[in-house]
Design a protein around this nucleic acid. Structure first.
Length: 596
RNA sequence: GGGGUGGUAGUUCAGCUGGUUAGAACGCCGGCCUGUCACGUCGGAGGUCGCGGGUUCGAGUCCCGUCCACCCCGCCA
């Protein structure tokens, strides 16, 4: 239907006759001459209808409206002097129409197809096909395609096999809530959509496929966020006969190539390596944004010499006092500080103490500190005149959590986050277990198939099982062969070396207080497979949506998903989820019991 | 489940301490216009003020409930 795409028509085509197709991006009817910007995926070109060429043609052109689909035959010519549009790649030329066909008309639009739409998201998603016509969103889709293409090519070059795993699979107890699918042929039974292909990819390793990958949808029925969708895409990988550093090296290599091929960005410095402990100590978070400093400092040892009751009480209860240096923030007013305090309290802290560093320390709590302590604090925090020291005292977890959020907030406020900067980090040596306060037991921080670190194996097997319910047991100190990759403060991937021996896996379930029957019921097929010569193996999954979001500079994961869901996990375009016929429910042996 | 913000024309928004004809811009429709590219210009149409209830002589405005969207907490790797 066409000889050229719109974006292709530049000076090189001057003098030739072309046929182009596309959408009417904009029409400008001067009564005499009529201009239309015709748009296809490749770009825009101006076409001109002139009464001097053909009166009938020119008359028909008055009827063209926005987003009409046109096929145009015409001659490419240099634009007359003074009418060149330098902000357009095709701005040197225009197409003089000799004939055209309206391939389709378009109703008045609910919003303008334009990069700078201010239409609300719900409207955009209801008419996502119009939203997707916007060049900026097309750019996101194209970038995503390029990233995927590059990932596949790389993984193929490293001998990974793309193998599909079931979408209709088995519900698992740990982790997120499952999306369930009722089985008609097995009344009362349900499939679950996979939260990840975890068990299947491990089985593929037992199967001797050695290197597996899949770019695959995963499903988690949890509440949404700007960076979370109920169905999302993982670049899922698993390798046999590898150590943690092998996996990390491959992923580093892969990321480097993807950034080069997709963004033409050369990642020169290798990702920072931090243990979980270091990350928590210095940033209070296992996904620190390393685009700026503002590190946290533990000042418990200094403030213990003060007479400030809040700090002392916290310390006596086993808590900690940590601080952050708000660079140049000593000018903050009482109200600014109250706002910051409220913000930190929203994260769970009881309060926020502060000291302004001026010629002397200005602070309501300064009087509780001996002179040498104040000096030690400013030294520890490397605080200079004009800085603001901010303190949180609480249980270790709360202190870290609050200060890491505060740190991110300060990073934004102090404008320390620069566009186009990509700071990667690997976080390693995660604890195996995490204590669940509500259920008074330990849970797997990563998942129950994660191998303990070599050095901790002995303790792993020897820990007294009676400590399983104690929040301070030796289980806390055990570390896993798990690793997360973090980019600009987002966790973009994570993985681990897996347990490949039955005895370790049994022990893991024992420590998680999952009895043998339950373990067999849920994961029996994996447990059994481990007994048939399972090789050492490990892997990782990258969150493709998040990765592409960061690469494109999009503000929400929804921007890089063609058909995203709203915060209520609904699809505004298709109106899913919807009610179903009574007959369908009957076939599935289901009865509804909706509590009003 | 909880906190916050928002919902008024097709769209984005304004609409004060409640006051009778609910506005603007863009878009849409019609006229004029031969060099625009955010075209210009003249005119016009267009409203269940999210929904339900209440207070009041009177509600877009106040109160209660509810729905939807977004951000966050919980939840989630």
């Amino acid at each position: 239907m066409r000889t050229h795409s719109c974006g292709q028509i530049t000076e090189n085509e001057i003098g030739s006759t072309v046929t182009i197709v596309g959408w009417t991006n904009k029409w400008r009817d001067h009564g005499g001459v009529v201009f239309i910007d015709l748009r296809d995926r490749s770009g825009l070109v101006q076409v001109v209808f002139s009464p001097e060429i053909d009166v009938e043609l020119h008359k028909a052109a008055h009827k063209i409206r926005n987003e009409f689909v046109l096929q145009i035959e015409g001659d490419v010519r240099q634009r007359p002097e003074g009418t060149i549009n330098t902000s357009l790649p095709t701005g040197q030329v225009e197409v003089v129409v000799k004939s055209f066909t309206v391939l389709n008309e378009c109703k008045p639009l609910p919003f303008m197809v334009d990069d700078e739409t201010d239409a609300s998201e719900s409207l955009r998603y209801k008419y996502r096909y119009l939203d997707l016509r916007r060049p900026i969103i097309q750019k996101y889709m194209i970038m995503r395609h390029k990233a995927v293409k590059s990932l596949r090519a790389y993984l193929d070059s490293q001998d990974f096999l793309d193998i599909e795993t079931p979408m209709l699979t088995k519900s698992t107890p740990e982790g997120a809530r499952d999306y369930l699918v009722p089985s008609r042929t097995n009344p009362g039974r349900f499939f679950a959509l996979p939260q990840s292909p975890q068990i299947f990819k491990q089985i593929l390793m037992v199967s001797g496929l050695e290197r597996y990958y899949q770019i695959v949808k995963c499903f988690r029925d949890e509440d949404l966020r700007a960076d979370r969708q109920p169905e999302f895409t993982q670049v899922d990988m698993e390798l046999s006969f590898v150590t943690r550093d092998d996996v990390i090296a491959i992923v580093d290599d892969m990321i480097k190539i993807v950034f080069k091929e997709t963004l033409d960005v050369e990642l020169t410095e290798p990702p920072v390596r931090l243990t979980y402990h270091e990350a928590m100590d210095r940033y209070g978070s296992d996904k620190p944004d390393l685009r700026f400093g503002l590190e946290l400092k533990d000042v418990s040892d200094i403030v213990k010499d003060s007479s400030f009751k809040v700090f002392l009480d916290t310390l006596s209860k086993g808590g900690m006092v940590k601080a952050i240096n708000g660079k140049g923030m000593a000018g903050y007013s009482r109200k600014d500080l109250d706002d910051l305090t409220r913000e930190v309290q929203g994260y769970g802290a009881k309060g926020l103490a502060w000291m302004k560093v001026k010629d002397k320390i200005e602070s309501p709590i300064a009087k509780f500190f001996p002179e040498e302590s104040l000096k030690a604090l400013t030294e520890r925090l490397e605080a200079e005149n004009g800085d603001l020291m901010l303190f949180v005292a609480d249980k270790v977890d709360v202190t870290n959590d609050c200060l890491s959020r505060l740190r991110n907030e300060l990073g934004r406020r102090l404008d320390l986050i620069k566009e186009g900067v990509y700071k990667f980090a690997w976080i390693t040596d995660f604890p195996i277990f995490e204590y669940n306060e509500d259920e008074k037991r330990y849970e797997a921080m990563h998942h129950p198939f994660t191998a303990p670190m070599e050095e901790d194996l002995e303790t792993f097997f020897s820990v007294d099982a009676s400590e399983l319910r104690s929040p301070d047991s030796g289980l806390r100190s055990l570390r896993a062969e798990a690793y997360d990759i973090v980019l600009n403060g987002y966790e973009i991937g994570g993985g681990s070396i897996r347990i490949h021996k039955k005895d370790a896996q049994d022990r893991m379930f024992q420590l998680l207080n999952i009895d043998a029957d339950e373990a067999n019921d849920k994961f029996g097929f994996l447990l059994e497979a481990l007994e048939y010569g399972a090789p050492p193996h490990g892997g990782l999954a990258l969150g493709l949506d998040r990765l592409v979001m960061i690469m494109t500079g999009a503000h929400s994961i929804r921007d890089v998903i063609a058909f995203p869901k709203t915060q209520k996990a609904a699809c505004p375009l298709s109106s899913a989820p919807s009610e179903v016929d009574a007959k369908q429910l009957e076939e599935l042996s289901l009865k509804l019991d909706i509590v009003e």
